[in-house]
Design a protein around this nucleic acid. Sequence first.
RNA 1: GCGAGAGUGGCGGAAUUGGCAGACGCACUGGACUUAGGAUCCAGCGGGAUAACCGUGGGGGUUCGACUCCCCCCUCUCGCACCA
Length: 839
Amino acid sequence: MKTEFIVNNNRYNPSDIEPKWQKQWEREQCFIVTHKDNRPKYYVLEMFPYPSGRIHMGHVRNYSIGDVVARLKRMQGFNVIHPMGWDAFGLPAENAAIKNKTHPAEWTYQNISYMKAELKKLGYSYDWSKELATCHPGYYKWEQLFFLKFMEKGLVYRKKAPVNWCPKCLTVLANEQVESGVCWRCESVVERKELSQWFLRITRYAEELLECLDSLSQGWPERVITMQKNWIGKSTGMEIDFQVEGLDKKIRVFTTRQDTLFGATFMSLAPEHELVQELIQDSPDKNQITAFINKVIRMDQLDRTADNMEKEGFFTGKYCINPVNGEKMPVFIANFVLVEYGTGAVMAVPAHDQRDLEFARKYDLPVRVVVQPEDGGALSDDMEKAYAGPGTMVNSGQFDGMGNEQFKEAIADFLEEKALGKKTVNYRLRDWNISRQRFWGAPIPIVYCEQCGAVPVPEEDLPIILPQNAIMPEDGKSPLPELKSFLDTPCPQCKGKGRRETDTMDTFVESSWYFARYADPRNENAPFDKKASKYWLPVDQYIGGIEHAILHLLYSRFFVKALRDIGYLEIDEPFSNLLTQGMVLKDGAKMSKSKGNVVDPDEMISKFGADTVRLFCLFASPPEKDLEWSDSAIEGASRFLNRLWRLTMELLPELKPVGPCKVLDQLSLNHAEKSLRTKEHETIMKITRDMIDKFQFNTAIAGAMELVNAIYHSKDELKDSFNGQEVLSSAISSVLTVLSPITPHVCEELWAMLGYDYPLSQSSWPQYDSLALQRDEVLVVIQVNGKLRSKISVPADISREKLGQSALKDEKALKHIQNKEIIKTIIIPQKLVNIVVKD
RNA sequence: GCGAGAGUGGCGGAAUUGGCAGACGCACUGGACUUAGGAUCCAGCGGGAUAACCGUGGGGGUUCGACUCCCCCCUCUCGCACCA
């Protein structure tokens, strides 16, 4: 057995050993798991890829990190589920289908099979028996069921609303998918359209989504939590009604500053506000105002919210009445008021709001200070900057003199008592528009009937399958609205003529629950078996890019809560711990075809082997930070594995498989033996801390390299010493064991060559011996006035006094002490002596 | 503008959380082995006249001692951005 290896392989040849171990792991089903197991479970998951055609370096980095975690946790004794699948619906498949005159499914499944082979070449320890593709009816059937269940619970509704339209993708987008006015996918400027769409009522969970973020603060990066908090955008305040003069109408505003109500001098409405038409009805400037409104409404999101957008407005000709002081306030239409936030109407308090002040100055409207700061000069109405801070109430009738914070409460109670207003909580979060005018997505299980309206498809008729015979039209539109075989169907209720919904679901719906399906992906009777999902969920460690900080991560959190409330899940949150890995850069920029700075993983694997690629990805940078690709640095990684290979080869004839961290009697070891053994155990301690506690694989690898260097430097001496062979064998075994999650193939190979009859993939994480950490002598630093002057080696157990005395005897230190008065001496045992002197 | 994070050799990055700044690697320099070296091994590698000394974006402070803690400032990255 042993000789066979040596004869065939005295050179490190990854292209031989990697496929060999991959086949063996597969043959022995090493990574296939079930929930029927007594070990504690651990669920590690990486964000599944869109099958775009090829794996890119970003994937390699993401999945390499995940694989290290999976292999590590297995070695720690967990029953690890580590699944992989495909986020398989999406627009690129449609475009490719048009180009190649095929069906999107064909392109998608081809890509899946190619990319799966690529992933296998990287040696990832996935349980492939749990693989899923979201475009498979066996998957989206359950999503359609969830849609129906959500509908029963009022979590789904259809509404005609202004929506975000991407003119290039020819579909609507959810608010989360519009990033500063442009489409998240193609960066086209988003347009406004009025359409009837299906919405998921994520806002019902706004408060819980916000609150639970606190429970995630241990396991999630703070910035993701902050981003989600901002997105949910909770603010507490009041809704207050203002009577319109001469009309039987009220304008309701939302404000967080009800304490400034006495300072409200005019009213601003969004151009889309429902009362606008009625208010301008009799205005002599009606035509001008209408033109203004149309201009603003027609502007795209990007321009309308641009920095340099000047505040503009028009007086409607109407007044409303300030409910607390009965004053007349002119009602304006203003371009900066957003219809989608609050009530689309703002009480303007120019003295205490910068926007209102600018507007007031422009249109010469009155400014009235109602909050005077306690310190600093008193504010007057000709102020140049609005004051938003705390202070004392003035110009506020009987409330003058009160602190504004206190008044905020008081006026709230007062207004509620008089039925003029209501305390409310407002969120920026909007309901999730999931209708997409695309073909390659999960059909929404609804039939429209002239008699019965929008009728849900009965459960037993699911799945509604995407037609296999659809031909993608050249114009890029969905073929579904024209496809009679799909469209025509009897109404489930009255059996009359019905027409299927042709919109499909946002692809973010699929990714909102795939992690739960992995628990039981082949179940044909339910989305997942209760026992299986209860055992595996939640995901213990989730790993992916920061770009999903809001999108996917917020939707998934919502889905889990909704599925919990309809009885499918028992968890509150999907992902206990989240690691957001940095991007892979080349020449300082994200890799992209257009920049021509793409590094192809396949090419790297065939050149250096998967282990080297994995090692480089983990060594070059800590996981959260961006990683700069370097052709010469990957050669360094390759060089290290070669060095490890040669070292083991050289020592092979001398070594027996004694196991990592072999128990040895410290007293029987000579100096060199003890020294390497100490280094071995120190390294295990360091790597355990770095890898298991901190996921800092870069420093863990550095530690392993140090140990390899130490073995190199002592091997010639130890080869012939009494205990040397055992010390060397233990040290090498330790290196192979701790590196095995990172570079599994080469470690397995060398491990087997050392003569072990069980694989590393079934080994345990090594335990260091704290006795081995103890050194007889330690190096102590001597400082004079805080400056390093010397280093001395002293017995580890030396007393403080003796240590101080030794320091004062040190020649190099003496040079800096001579003729000076010693004021004091700081002694830190085993570390340092600082002698403080006076000139 | 608001919020978060970062700034350390030629480069990627370390530093047990207040105790040797620059681990580990890349690049580079010298040497060895060699028909050859882009393989390997050995040595060096912050600056500086290799002496003092100066060095973790800049300036102050606390401390025996500061990359680390406090205050002010500069720069960069990311997120949000008229949210009432």
